[in-house]
């Protein structure tokens, strides 16, 4: 999962990025409003953490611009303004959640995950495909009741595919959602990770779940 953190306080943005990365997220940072808006409009994110008090354009304005352009990415407002009035204003403009500073980091992660789940229409943190279970809370996967050890990147790719199961995901989309934006990467890396995942998930099972769609990408689905 890839998130954008728009926060002018660099120390805060950096520690959030570090923390989210340790939760298998990929995070881009923007320290001012205009850049933040540009990034949110240009790249595809699974969620945006948006500070309200920003130099340039403020968070509320960024949010309403995004919603005006029908960019429906989940937005979590992060702000020092804790007044109920401000929180309502944020939610009315289309924010998915409102987190007053200072916050508990684990709670922030949980709320980001929950916002993403709600957005993809999957209220449960467990994604089940046949006998494969992906737990987006603990970042673990099981197949047939057996834990599958996964590296952080492998898990990220699996989670993205599982969150969009039964849909073909291109290599580019996968890269966009599991790597930082300015990460210059050969899309073959994805093929390598897909191979690792196949070995761990499908090996030894009769019904394969990860499929290659020639010329399009990959799909995670049950075979009939």
């Amino acid at each position: 999962m890839k998130i954008l953190i728009v926060e002018d306080e660099k120390d805060l943005a950096n520690i959030l990025k570090k923390g989210f990365e340790e939760h298998s997220f990929v995070a881009d940072i923007s320290n001012d409003g205009e850049e933040g808006l540009y990034m949110a409009e240009t790249y595809s994110y699974d969620a945006i953490i948006l500070d309200i008090m920003l130099p340039g354009i403020d968070g509320i304005e960024i949010l309403s611009q995004l919603r005006k352009k029908h960019i429906d990415v989940p937005v979590l407002m992060l702000t020092a303004k804790g007044e109920v009035k401000d929180r309502i204003a944020g939610l009315e403009k289309g924010a998915d959640d409102y987190i007053p500073k200072p916050f508990d980091f684990q709670e922030l992660v949980a709320r980001v995950k929950s916002a993403i789940r709600r957005n993809t229409g999957k209220p449960s943190p467990l994604i089940v495909i046949s006998n494969l279970v992906v737990d987006t809370n603990t970042h673990t996967a099981q197949r047939g009741g057996t834990d599958i050890p996964l590296s952080a990147k492998e898990y990220s790719i699996l989670e993205y595919l599982a969150s969009h199961k039964n849909r073909v995901i291109s290599r580019t989309e996968l890269i966009e959602h599991v790597y930082e934006t300015d990460f210059d990467l050969d899309s073959n890396v994805i093929d390598v990770y897909i191979n690792f995942l196949r070995n761990k998930i499908d090996k030894g099972f009769k019904n394969k779940l990860i499929h290659t769609v020639r010329g399009a990408g990959y799909i995670l689905k049950e075979t009939e």
Binding site: L12, I15, G19, A80, G82, K101, P102, F103, D104, F105
Partner: peptide, 9 residues
């Protein structure tokens, strides 16, 4: 609140 958030995080 912002520096408190930095410390807390």
């Amino acid at each position: 609140k912002t520096p408190v958030a930095v410390i807390r995080s």
